[in-house]
């Protein structure tokens, strides 16, 4: 933006020449100006348009009223490298097949609606960029595994939320403070990682134990229990530990680390589960 102002004599200089004459005085401004189109273009300067390219997206479709079994259907879409898999699904739904069903809400990785299995890994469609995939091969998109499939990419999330509710994901404290409940930085830091959860179910449905044992609480429920177990303001840690010290609780975890890899928020899920296990053996260390 500031390139023409910085050089002082913009004249016929191209941005590249401007960078040379300036030397090291203000390289940052020139660099950023070269990247975008947010500066006045010089006469005769070639503008590099981003090119779209065809991408094959193969979606596992399932219409309960028609299909007995889910079926793989492939679509060709024109994509830009900076676009997301969610954009590809939009393009399919809006331009090719309006019957395609999937969930999405904010489309910016916050609401946690569009977790799906993309090329065999659980990802948020709104955070999976086309440029991160090998587009010479098709991109496979299917619903997350282990929860009842309802239609196309939509699963019934109720069993997942049932487990979440069961671990009492709310602050429980008997005292009533004058203004607020104080906490040191270190005390807050203790459970910071697990406050990031957006309940997208990417972790729980990446877990091989959960696939075969739907009764298992699953990583997401344990993460949210961890968030309160290690909160110095909460008084019901032991209640939650007792709930999770169950046949279908934390001991079902086989440390495959699929959940840690799947988490779109970068939560160290398996580490959180291990900390809950350790809290059961040696007590809660805040």
């Amino acid at each position: 933006m500031a390139a023409t102002q910085v050089t002082g004599t913009p004249g016929e200089e191209t941005a590249a020449q401007a960078a040379q004459t300036e030397g090291g005085t203000a390289p940052a401004e020139v660099d950023s100006a070269q990247e975008g189109h947010d500066r006045p273009l010089e006469a005769g300067e070639a503008v590099e348009e981003p090119q779209s390219f065809p991408v094959t997206v193969i979606v596992r479709r399932y219409d309960p009223e028609v299909d007995d079994e889910p079926r793989w259907v492939d679509y060709d879409v024109q994509m830009f490298a900076t676009e997301r898999i969610l954009d590809a699904l939009h393009r399919i739904k809006w331009e090719q097949d309006p019957s395609l069903a999937f969930r999405r809400s904010c489309a910016h990785g916050v609401c946690g609606s569009d977790a799906m299995r993309i090329n065999g890994k659980n990802r948020l469609a709104c955070k999976a960029l086309v440029k991160d995939f090998d587009t010479s091969k098709p991109i496979y998109v299917e619903a997350i595994k282990g929860l009842p499939l309802e239609k196309d990419l939509i699963v019934n999330m109720e069993p997942f939320f049932d487990s979440f509710r069961e671990i009492q994901p709310f602050l429980q404290a008997s005292s009533k403070p004058e203004k607020e409940r104080h906490q040191t930085i270190a005390q807050r830091e203790r459970f910071d990682d697990t406050t990031k959860c957006i309940l997208c179910a990417a972790c729980t449905t990446s877990c091989p134990v959960f696939w075969t044992d739907g009764q298992y609480f699953g990583p997401a429920a344990i993460v949210n229990a961890h968030r309160f177990i290690f909160d110095s303001r909460d008084e019901a840690s032991q209640v939650r530990l007792d709930i999770l010290n169950d046949r279908e609780g934390v001991w079902r975890c086989r440390t495959t680390f699929n959940c840690t890899d799947a988490c779109p928020r970068g939560i160290q899920v398996t580490k959180a589960i291990a900390e809950v296990k350790q809290a059961m053996m040696t007590g809660v260390k805040l």
């Binding site: 299995r117 090329n119 890994k121 299917e142 595994k145 091989p208 495959t256 699929n258 890899d261």
Partner: peptide
């Protein structure tokens, strides 16, 4: 026909 979950070393 289907995809295999692509886990890492842990899986």
């Amino acid at each position: 026909s289907g995809t295999l979950y692509r886990g890492n070393e842990g899986m």
